[in-house]
């Protein structure tokens, strides 16, 4: 995890090695899946108990990297707000022919509103394209971590992880 520990974000290759990040084929098949971008063995497992379908395992230890069972994950997004590290995203490539949805945990106020537009930022914070807010969810059960969903062009959906409004 060289990039993560020297620059502060996961490099593409580091990312694809993670057991919580689905393979492209699985995403293509399922259209909507969680991306658990958790790259360090830290003692943490709320994502496991948050998943209503048991799709996330953290084993054998609480420090093990979370693994996603893509067969069981149905892209409900419950795990996003549960992750204390705000490291889980939801990618839905079935939105339209050219566009995908990316759901992002978000803790800045004021919350954006549906229809707001801005730049989609990649993991390093670089602007990589346009993004439009299509959904803002912040029920009590999320405990003040909102989940915002942005619409971006499909080819940046695996990179877009933040929006600069």
């Amino acid at each position: 995890m060289k990039n993560l520990i020297t620059a502060g974000f996961l490099g593409r290759e580091e990312l694809m090695r993670l057991p919580g990040v689905p393979a492209i084929e699985a995403l293509k098949a399922k259209k909507s899946l969680a991306f658990i971008e958790c790259g360090e063995e830290i003692p943490c497992d709320p994502c496991r108990s948050a998943c209503p379908r048991g799709a996330i395992t953290v084993s054998p230890d609480v420090t093990s990297l979370p693994a996603l069972n893509t067969d069981l994950c149905n892209g409900c997004g419950t795990c996003l707000a549960a992750c204390p590290g705000m490291a889980i995203f939801l990618v839905d490539i079935g939105y339209s022919e050219t566009e995908a949805l990316v759901s992002i945990p978000y803790e800045y106020l004021p919350l954006p509103e549906v229809g707001d537009t801005g730049n989609a930022l990649d993991r390093s914070g670089k602007a990589i394209g346009k993004a439009v807010i299509v959904k803002v969810k912040c029920p009590e059960s999320y405990d003040r971590t909102a989940i915002i969903t942005i619409k971006v062009l499909k080819d940046i959906s695996l990179e877009a992880r933040h929006i600069d409004i």
Binding site: G8, F9, L10, C38, G85, M86, D122, S124, G125
Partner: peptide, 10 residues
């Protein structure tokens, strides 16, 4: 890393 990533992506 997760704390770092929260910053870098912004």
């Amino acid at each position: 890393g997760v704390h770092a990533a929260k910053l870098t992506r912004t």
